[in-house]
Simulated scan of single mutants.
Amino acid sequence: MARTLLSVQILPRTPDGGDVIPYVDRAIEVIQASGLPFRVGPLETTMEGELDELLAVVARMNEEMVRMGCPSVIHQIKIYHNTEGASMNELTRKYDPPAGGGESK
Score class of each variant (00 low, 15 high):
P22W: 14
E64F: 07
V30C: 00
G18W: 01
A27E: 02
L36I: 00
V58L: 02
E48G: 08
K78T: 13
E44I: 05
G18I: 14
D16Q: 12
G35K: 00
I21V: 15
I10S: 03
L43F: 15
M61H: 03
N62G: 07
M68T: 10
E29H: 04
C70R: 03
V40Y: 12
L43E: 03
V20Y: 07
V24L: 13
D19R: 15
R39N: 15
M61T: 07
L36P: 06
T45H: 10
M65T: 07
Y23Q: 08
F38E: 11
N82V: 14
R26W: 11
E29Y: 10
I31S: 06
H75C: 05
L51T: 12
L51I: 08
V20L: 14
G18R: 13
L55W: 00
P12F: 05
P12A: 08
L51R: 15
I21A: 14
I74T: 15
Y80T: 12
L43R: 12
E53H: 04
V57W: 04
I10Q: 05
L43D: 00
I79H: 14
V73Q: 01
V66I: 15
G35D: 11
M61D: 00
I31M: 04
V20K: 09
A33S: 04
P42T: 11
I79W: 11
M47V: 06
V40C: 00
L55E: 01
R67L: 02
I74P: 04
M47Y: 10
S34A: 02
T45M: 04
V57S: 04
T45E: 02
E48Y: 03
G69D: 09
H81M: 10
L11A: 15
T46M: 03
P22C: 11
G41L: 05
E29P: 01
C70S: 07
V24E: 09
